[in-house]
Design a protein around this nucleic acid. Structure first.
Lengths: 325, 325
DNA sequence: TTGAAAGCGCTAACAT
DNA sequence: ATGTTAGCGCTTTCAA
């Protein structure tokens, strides 16, 4: 069945398509009867205004892109969920692309979004991705999430202030008597990686047992990376506690720990990153660094749906919190 | 900065926009030099073809909609994740809308998708939603997921054959000596609810202890609903085991059980629905009904990206499996 | 080998 | 109060 357009309705009613257009937008310059007739017929035929035509004319489409490494990690899932709801409330649509932290996938996703003329993109920049997310993407507002592609990318960013929480995590472990505390986190390729590692080192120094280098593992953050390093740390048996600096890393490390526990029963103290619901149920509750997802998502939705794109590269930062269980 | 179009390039190079169009699509009817010059300039200016213009002309946009109750539940998250990846591989974009199982949100989402001329939608129909998802949506191919808005909706559907798994779950509990087995699931408002409840009842009959009605709880499926009913069941203390028939219900019931366990230490045998990663870690592993997410998602992506819309209301069904832990 | 015209759905700006 | 025209970016068709 061919698309129902204002012309369909116009012919149907024997008026010009302009009259229909006016009637549908409740322009006063139409006979009341005509207007009602048009509305009625439109409803009957199931007419919907083509946003495509509107966009071609110059309206900016109420479409935003969201680029995440994945959506299985509960943090990203929650973020996407909340942001989608907030956008929906403003009649914005969200196109989600998963990058798996791969720069090529990231670039492709950005291109596809430009094709549909998405107004803005919220993205967790992939490590090693384009430093300047394509000059050409000047047409889209790019908002960086959690990490920054480069400290001076000039894009607005929504960040997490987690250094104090990481510091507190180390202190907490120290208070419990731990002296051999390992750390797994992103490498200094990522702005977030730098900050977290720094905070960890500061924490150990403050607690009086400067971290030994062989207890510090960094690299490109991923579930597997976290799992591998945790396995190694467990095998070495040197560390008595482990702090994670990344969502995926935390889950990966945890899976290694749970596996080991199933076999041997013992375990090491663990401080996770992010707070998926099940962390509260494992081992009578896992201590973890909780990131304020809702706030982040709401901020993102705000920035996306507000038409005034922040000219200044505004950065907002939200406070993470150590949840002790 | 104004959008870069073929006209921009044309003026720039002093040729007609048609030449540019031809050059960009590698039409042989252009001087080699011209073609190369055009390509070069296009790259420099960061030109991207407007899919909006193409769609207006008649191309169908490679955009599909995905309507899910939420995306926090790990099953839905995994589904969305896998489907998004599969779509990406085919250069399709996915617009995700969250309905929270609310018919009004569902209807709105469908309208928005029609506005952007989405080609097809994969949706978990909300309970009580439009029986015929809007005749007018004839323009979009609607694919129902997991449940059907009505048995004879006539839409293609991707379903889960979980009756044998539910049956097996009851048998498993019976083998372990349980006789008072409770069930929480969707009501008969949903096609999936009917089937699961039926399978549960059949199972208890086969096991020799027909389910007593006060151990059977049904209603609109949600986390809260699962949680409330589980709390009540625990408080009554009659049942020694509980089977869940729904993703959200399962997580809700589980949260009630974990809370109770934290307080009293005892618990009842539990068979979940869906298999989020952490089920394996709780209580040395939760027995659960595992739904083949990947298969479902891949099938969905296939149907969406294949241009030949299945005229016949094809239904595919994938087998769920009882995972005993 | 190139260009000009028309049309996809819609509305602002002019007619009438 | 209603109709006509033009143009958003692109390709198909027809003309040079």
């Amino acid at each position: 069945m061919a698309r129902v357009t204002i012309k369909t309705i116009a012919q149907d009613l024997g008026v010009s398509h302009m009259t229909v257009s006016r009637a549908l937008s409740d322009n006063p310059n139409v006979q009341k009867e005509t207007r009602e007739a048009v509305h009625k017929r439109a409803r009957e035929l199931g007419y919907v205004k083509s946003s495509v035509a509107m966009v071609l004319r110059g309206d900016s489409p109420r479409i935003a892109g969201l680029l995440l490494p994945n959506i299985v990690n509960e943090f990203y899932a929650r973020f996407a969920n909340e942001m989608a709801l907030a956008c929906e409330a403003q009649s914005w649509q969200l196109i989600i692309h998963l990058t798996n932290d791969d720069p090529k996938a990231e670039q492709k996703a950005l291109d596809r979004l430009r094709e549909v003329q998405a107004t803005s993109v919220v993205m967790v920049p992939a490590p090693g991705g384009a430093k300047e997310p394509l000059a050409s993407s000047a047409s889209m507002q790019v908002i960086e999430l959690i990490r920054q592609s480069s400290p001076d990318s000039g894009n607005p960013a929504i960040l997490v202030e987690d250094r104090s929480a990481i510091h507190a995590a180390v202190q907490h472990l120290a208070d419990a008597g731990h002296r051999q505390v390992a750390y797994i986190g992103a490498d200094s390729n990522l702005t977030s990686g730098q900050g977290r590692l720094q905070a960890f080192c500061d924490g150990t120094k403050a607690a009086g047992f400067p971290a030994s280098l062989d207890l510090i593992c960094t690299g490109a953050p991923s579930f597997d990376m976290g799992r591998r390093h945790a396995q190694r740390i467990l095998a070495q048996g040197q560390a008595t506690a482990l702090v994670c600096g990344g969502f995926e890393i935390s889950n990966g490390a945890l899976s290694a720990i749970m596996d080991a526990k199933a076999e041997q029963g013992d375990g090491i103290a663990f401080v996770g990153y992010g707070d998926p619901s099940f962390y509260a149920w494992l081992d009578r509750g896992l201590t973890t660094i909780q990131v304020p997802v809702t706030q982040l998502a709401q901020r993102a939705a705000e920035m996306v749906t507000s038409t005034h794109r922040s000219d200044e590269s505004k950065q907002s930062s939200f406070l993470a919190q150590l949840i002790i269980r």
